[in-house]
Amino acid sequence: MNFQGIYDRIRSIQAPGVTGMDEPREPNPQDKKDKGRSGDPYVLVDPQRLPEFLECLRDDPSLKFELMADLTATDPSKEDGYLWINVQLLSLVRKHRLAVKCLLPKENAVMPSSVSVHRGAQWAERECSEMYGITFEGHPDPRNILLPEDWIGHPLRKDYEFPEEYHGISCK
């Protein structure tokens, strides 16, 4: 199924939390500031309803997104007030992919955990949470995964400042 087919199906089964979609487009020749957008189309989902959405897509017989390939976050810029949550879904039976994106406010970065739907999300969420400071509610094991337990700051945020020293070892 191509993206349009998948999106129509999502609309027709009324998957929870869908707020819209975005597709690549050509730049507008009249407007010089508009550079267009390339790459993949994606579905926009409300972050608070992401687990329900994933469950719905996993169990739907004609979508069958049974494998979560990736869950990650993106900090678009310092000024932007939102973090993106990017989920890549994969269906082994139907052989199609889907990119899902959620906009999560930086001020209160709390969203429910998807571990109950895809257990593969467990480590991905741990990584997201330490790198971006997102709290996943209901996560069974919310420790740091890559960074030391006492690490200060969230390195992949755009406003992160590199540490001066750690446990007496200079960082410069």
Binding site: L147, P155, Y160, F162, P163, I169, S170, C171, K172
Partner: peptide
């Protein structure tokens, strides 16, 4: 590399 020790001779 924010977590990388800049040379093992610091340790």
């Amino acid at each position: 590399g924010y977590t990388v020790v800049k040379g093992v001779d610091r340790v």
